[in-house]
Nucleic acid binder design. Sequence first.
DNA 1: CACACTTACGATATTCGTAAGGATT
DNA 2: AATCCTTACGAATATCGTAAGTGTG
Lengths: 299, 299
Amino acid sequence: MNGTVNISTRQLRAFVALVELRNFTRAAQKCCLSQPAFSALIQSIEAEAGVRLFDRSTRHVELTAEGQLFEQWASRLLLDFDTAFVNLKDHVTLRRGRVAVSALPTIAATMLAPVLAEYHAAYPGVAIEMFDTLADASLALVREGRADLALTAGKVEHPDFEVHRLFDEPFHLVCRRDDPLLARPTVMLDDLAGQPFIHMVRSSSIRQKIEAELAAVPMRMVMEVAHLATVGAMIESGLGISVLPAQAVPRLGMPSLASRPLGGKPLFRTHYMIQARQRSLSAAAVTFREILLARLKRE
Amino acid sequence: MNGTVNISTRQLRAFVALVELRNFTRAAQKCCLSQPAFSALIQSIEAEAGVRLFDRSTRHVELTAEGQLFEQWASRLLLDFDTAFVNLKDHVTLRRGRVAVSALPTIAATMLAPVLAEYHAAYPGVAIEMFDTLADASLALVREGRADLALTAGKVEHPDFEVHRLFDEPFHLVCRRDDPLLARPTVMLDDLAGQPFIHMVRSSSIRQKIEAELAAVPMRMVMEVAHLATVGAMIESGLGISVLPAQAVPRLGMPSLASRPLGGKPLFRTHYMIQARQRSLSAAAVTFREILLARLKRE
DNA sequence: CACACTTACGATATTCGTAAGGATT
DNA sequence: AATCCTTACGAATATCGTAAGTGTG
């Protein structure tokens, strides 16, 4: 480590200023320094280089042969330095950057969409990467560092992850507006017994939740589908009913569907935000997190 | 000047070392610093950048997202820095460089040639530019900065130039070995009267010196030629005699020529080394000057 | 003699290493 | 308990600005 050069950008800037102005007094002003301090700064570069870089009398300041040589490098070095730092600062100030979020498809389509919109409006220079995928894949992305944050609908217990509880979302009965079930003042869980039921596929976290909580209620499975919109379309067509996260229903944009809270034992899922415990969040991710939490608090 | 980054190569080197080793203790050793001092150095970069660049616990040291970004620049910046400085140091240590000397052709061929050879042997990386030209042109080159040093055979008085006297060189009679003049114990200036004389052209400094000093001795001009070698050949062929700088004669490599000091009033020219007063000499030129002076002192 | 760079010098800020503190495995 | 990073702190070093010195036109 000894014998290596040690030069600061202040010294480089001083050199470049003096090359440009050929005058210690004015170059010192440009560098916001007293003239003697500036003089010392120039001397420190010359000491580091081992040569005089300027010939100076009280009347003239000129580059020496070695100074001319160094001049060719100095401004480019400085430019590269500044470019690197401007780039870095751009990321810190979110003029540029990247944030990656993963979430279950239903969460992505419901809670997350407006947050992403707000974030993008505020920081249009930051690229957003959105993974809408199953819970396990979501967590894997965070673990691998490919996603900064994951939103899940179930608690995760693992030392690798830092978990932050967001809010509870109730499950609602979803059926056609003309369904006889809606005639009752409140629909109880047991009322669903024997009803034709549209399920999500088994890998879906909604399906898993329904199976776990409604195990006691015998229902007729009409079919199982992969996408929420398909569930909606099936209900609309009179094939059956379903029980879905409350926020998901209006997002389907199907006016002939009705959703209704269920009486009896409260049925809900809890949303969590998850991040890797070891890794710190990027500036872009930190701000995304803040916007997400602020929006939830607001509602 | 405020708001600008100020980073030193020490900080860069610390960053790069820590990226490489992922361990504060070992990276500190590599930088010849105590571990706390090294830690502070890393913190100073982070403060300058406005972000954490490393996530560290006692067990793991990892780059943050911003650290990864900066990593891409850091090593290249450092490399450019070192390249610039190595290049500069190469010139300071004369591994590379350029020196330009101008001199009268006779001086170049006599006094200067062995100096150039010695210099080139010692510093083969330094390019030598040799201008053999008339005195006025020689001085112009120095004034314009195209030559570092000039060697002249006459004193120059001008505030732009710094003049250093080298040595006196006598003028000798040059004639054929069988010339009757050589029969005399000593040849006096007056003995040359009526002799057939080979002159250099009028622009030559030798001619000017001869005309000024030998005005009183009437000689027969047989011819005037531009080059010293031509003078020699003419004498060899028996066309006449001449009076030339002593060192020039053996350089002609003409064994049938004889040279002899002249008795009476001493006839000589004085050599000077000249450099620009304002400009400092490059490292290459300083060393050339030293070698030149050392060689003259040696002889 | 006026202007411009250097040197001198005391005050302030930075940086160093040693030693103690705290966290992780 | 061992390892490793951070904090604390006094000492050494560096840097600053003011003021005096020096040389050049």
